[in-house]
Write a protein that binds this DNA or RNA. Structure first.
Lengths: 168, 168
DNA sequence: GGTGGATAGTTGCATCTGATACTATCTGGC
DNA sequence: GCCAGATAGTATCAGATGCAACTATCCACC
């Protein structure tokens, strides 16, 4: 029980970590990310950012790094390092010469395409295993809610230094 | 599963990063965590692990570090460092003498209790801002689904090296 | 046609994180 | 009692991360 004889204030009492959404979100995400990251790392030597680049390039075709940044939401440093690692392994090809001398167009190499085709079913299998037993309806709602949360966090971080305005 | 059966695999085509649950989960969690972490860091000089320890100790009263580990799911190293930092700031008190000489009982100091009471409303305000506009029903479902995902990830990580068994 | 400011990308640095190894202590079987 | 193994916690090291500073290039405007 509590050390202090005095009970907690009502405000504090209504905060229960287990029911606190940011906590639940972080713990669930860490568990899933750790699982996925280990799978990609162990089997293919890929980091999560590297795998994301492969996915986006396989989906949308070649683009430069800043496009990858806005597409994935990752930091430009993260994208840069992931692209370097993939280029070193010849999974990416970078055409340096361009109509813009600053940017390089990044594209999957043939080997990169092959790797993506090999990993994609595994990725889908992991997702299927994670949501097995869930109503597809619920999964769709989950994804929608996650998008909402992400948007709300962005608004709160970018526009209001404190949540008081959003609460008003 | 069909790995290389087709040159242009339908499997790979059906993997869209934006609709991939682990991706959505990670992006949403990172956005929310960054928001919350910055708030605690800027205003109170607390890290997320430190804040979690404060919450748990305020909720459940004194305990030793291994209890904090199992309660929060964080690494024991993370807990150790968070406790050290909080002890240095006199927000925690550690009674070294115990019936078990290895463990120290960790408890919130009075100042720690005060800080918790001060931060808790802010934490709740952030949560309220994040879920504003959402049906409470949906929020409850979201938390339940997050728990399910966390559990499924734990099972997949701890018991099955590949998701194939869970798919069977 | 040169100059200021914006943009693409890299590097450096400081921090966080987690795995491993280590010390200290406890527990159970002999 | 004593030793093997388990447990609590800390220290050490490697890797990931993100911010800030930097270089190089492009664009707009005078």
């Amino acid at each position: 029980m509590t050390l202090q004889s005095r009970p907690e204030p009502a405000d504090a009492a209504s905060l229960q970590l287990d029911a606190y959404l940011p906590y639940r979100l972080s713990v669930a995400s860490n568990a899933v990310s750790r699982l996925i990251a280990r799978a990609y790392e162990d089997r293919f030597g890929l980091t999560i950012p590297q795998w994301r680049l492969i996915c986006v390039l396989a989906e949308d075709g070649p683009m430069n790094q800043s496009a990858l940044v806005s597409r994935t939401g990752m930091d430009k440093v993260t994208v840069s390092r992931a692209a370097q690692g993939l280029t070193r392994r010849h999974l990416l090809e970078r055409s340096e010469n361009d109509l813009d001398g600053r940017s390089h167009v990044v594209a999957l190499s043939l080997e990169g395409v092959r790797l993506h085709a090999e990993i994609a079913p595994l990725a889908l299998a992991y997702e299927a295993a994670l949501i097995s037993g869930l109503d597809p309806h619920e999964v769709a709602l989950l994804k929608r809610l996650l998008l909402r949360l992400q948007g709300a966090a962005g608004v709160l971080a970018g526009e209001t230094p404190s949540p008081s305005q959003a609460l008003a």
